[in-house]
């Protein structure tokens, strides 16, 4: 499954908030070609794991990305925070070009940068919106523009924190398909999400977190076992393999919850 080169390595990796470990001695390796879904209940440590791995949060243990210089790291991994922030009324094209920041030479965007921006705009279907003001777009369009920004960075690894939250069903599916396609081209994608059905369908690998620990890591079928679902999410679910691919539907709440 992991035929690509390793793009992220965490070893005995912890992030603390005060004395409390929000990520607790995690060891994880992600390689090119993988679309990794990071799942877990609220407060499981998904966001802290990704921010810590980038070196944005203070951490203990080893994180391969955090050991790089900021510029090298920015060429190795793109990060899409959950907050969709666009401070100024810039055009969509300008917004996407910001993704080229770590690649820019002294003279600003060159031909290679413009080509990367075009590829990202095209992949997200933003061609007709390129001259629109990003702050005046609908939530879904803005989310697409911000994904295009991260794509324009053209890094071996893309990490996205709940990128499909708040999108309509078509937007959610399209976004997950883009991530799966990126993995098919040899990139690695780590995406945190709460929709286990989409995770089961589009991710090649799931990493399940609970209280700061990685409690399961493997194919969606392995990770979304009734025992794991009950212990971590306190739900039971219907999980079937159909001609249309895997179908996963949570059915009810179990036990403590």
């Amino acid at each position: 499954m992991t035929e690509g080169a390793e793009v992220l390595a965490l070893r005995e990796f912890s992030v603390r908030r005060g004395d409390l470990p929000v990520v607790d001695r995690v060891t994880l390796s992600v390689a090119g070609g993988e679309c990794v879904g990071l799942i877990g209940p609220n407060g499981a440590g998904k966001t802290s794991l990704m921010r810590g791995a980038l070196g944005i949060l203070p951490h203990e243990g080893r994180a391969s990305l955090a050991e790089m210089t900021p510029r090298a790291r920015a060429r190795a991994a793109a990060w899409m925070p959950q907050a969709r922030e666009v401070a100024w009324p810039v055009t969509v094209e300008t917004l996407v070009t910001l993704g080229r920041t770590p690649h820019l030479g002294l003279r600003g965007p060159g031909a290679a940068d413009r080509a990367a921006v075009e590829r990202a705009l095209h992949r997200m279907g933003l061609g007709p919106l390129r001259d629109r003001i990003a702050t005046e777009l609908s939530g879904g369009e803005q989310a697409r523009a911000l994904i295009a920004r991260a794509l324009a960075q053209e890094t071996p690894l893309l990490m996205a924190d709940e990128p499909i939250a708040g999108l309509d069903p078509a937007g959610q599916i399209r976004t997950m398909e883009v991530f799966a396609a990126l993995a098919g081209e040899g990139h690695a994608v780590i995406v945190s999400l709460h929709d286990l059905g989409l995770a089961a369908r589009h991710c090649s690998r799931l990493v399940m977190m609970n209280r700061g620990r990685v409690v399961a890591d493997g194919t969606p079928a392995e990770v979304l076992s009734p025992a794991n679902l009950s212990a971590v999410f306190h739900v039971r679910a219907h999980h079937a393999h159909t001609a249309d691919g895997p179908v996963f539907q949570p059915l009810g709440v179990t036990g403590e919850g």
Partner: peptide, 20 residues
């Protein structure tokens, strides 16, 4: 200039794009 441009996307995104 370049760092402030990147900050348009917020502090987290700017830092992840290599802005100190």
């Amino acid at each position: 200039g370049r760092g402030l441009d990147a900050l348009t996307l917020g502090e987290d995104a700017a830092e992840a794009m290599g802005v100190n």
